[in-house]
Amino acid sequence: MNVTFDHEIAERPAGFQGPNLTPAGLELIPRELAPGVHALMANLPPKDNSGVIAGADAALVIDAGITPQVARHIRSLAAGLTPAPVRYLVNTTYHGDHTFGNAAFPADVTIVSHRANRDAMTDLGREKAMRAESMYGDEALLDAVTTWRRPDLVFDSSCEIDLGGGQLAALHWFGQGNGPGDTVVHVPSARTAWTGNFVAVGGIAMLLQGGPGPYLAAVRRMRDALPGLEWIVPGHGPIGSAPVALAELITYLERLESEVAEAVDAGLTLEETYARCTDPFEHGLPDSLLGGLAAYDLPQEIARTRFRHAVRELHRLNVLVTYRVRTGRPAR
């Protein structure tokens, strides 16, 4: 039996420690990828990245941050990077660490995302509770989030935003992935895509809804639809090679789906399934991820330890979600 979940499940593995997303100590460092195209990279892993795409007439910001204060930081950076006014804000997912800052953008900024993201943005209290588990003592910062501003404009498959002077931002939805409405922002001039929680470097998946089957299909569609793509800027973690990141994610999801299916067919319990499944990060981080850690404001050994812990915890969560989807058993 297979099921999908309408919302992110609240169940977590025993002792689970999610990624630390508190904005305390967060600085976003601009990195120019092409004329007018800047990644805004978090100085501490694995906090949220952002981006600014500027054309002759307008600029577009990718993701708004977890609090209004972070959103104001993003707006200040954008104003320093381009004279073009920010006219658009894209939400790559509905998750609060990407959208709670929406309300701090002026009303004349059009927020754009996939329809499923807008539809999921209905229960602010629940979403704040979900993100609070990753605040690690800074939960009170979410008190500043009193309004969950939803997208003004939605799309279903793809759309293009013309920023002037030949600068285009193409928005794509390839299917169910980490969430129902994962929005990829492809900037052809930089051969780069912002992928939110959909694709990260190093084969890391944040599998919170739907299971690996739909996710695999969506990742393969992205790979086939954007053959010239060279780089990805994920929602969390370093910039990396798009072909390598997509291939590693496909390998991870294929193995996860196969191993959990075998465990369920053998009648194993959830705890037995954890033990049966391959931990791809048991012996360290892949080379594709290690190279990007030098950009962080941390000694390399500390950065490696933090990332290794975070991705191993995400792997345990992925096994849990896949097991629940496969068995159709309700989450506790």
Rank of each mutant, 00 (worst) to 15 (best):
I250H: 06
A58E: 14
D119G: 03
T99P: 04
L314E: 00
P13N: 10
E271W: 02
A104K: 05
A263K: 09
P180I: 08
T269Q: 07
E313H: 04
R324D: 08
L253Y: 07
R115V: 13
D224W: 05
P243M: 09
P238A: 00
P35G: 11
T269D: 14
N49S: 01
F100C: 04
H309K: 11
Q176V: 04
S158C: 14
F281L: 02
A120R: 01
I74W: 01
L249D: 03
G240N: 06
I161R: 14
L289H: 02
V52T: 05
C277G: 12
G203R: 02
A218I: 01
T278N: 09
G235I: 00
G235T: 00
E139H: 12
C159H: 02
A190F: 01
A295E: 12
R87T: 05
A242E: 02
R316D: 04
A263R: 14
A54K: 13
A144H: 12
V264T: 12
L40I: 07
A169W: 01
R304D: 12
H283G: 00
R12S: 10
S158P: 00
R276N: 03
G328F: 07
L253S: 13
I111N: 05
L153V: 12
T67M: 13
Y88L: 09
E139M: 07
E313T: 02
E248C: 10
P212T: 04
L26G: 07
A218R: 06
T4L: 13
A103K: 13
D162M: 10
P188E: 11
G15D: 10
L33M: 15
A129N: 08
E230W: 03
A24M: 11
P212G: 09
L216F: 03
L293H: 06
A242Y: 07
G328E: 15
V260E: 06
T273M: 07
H236C: 08
E27C: 10
N178L: 04
R191C: 04
Q176F: 00
R87Y: 09
A42G: 06
A120T: 02
V154I: 12
A225I: 06
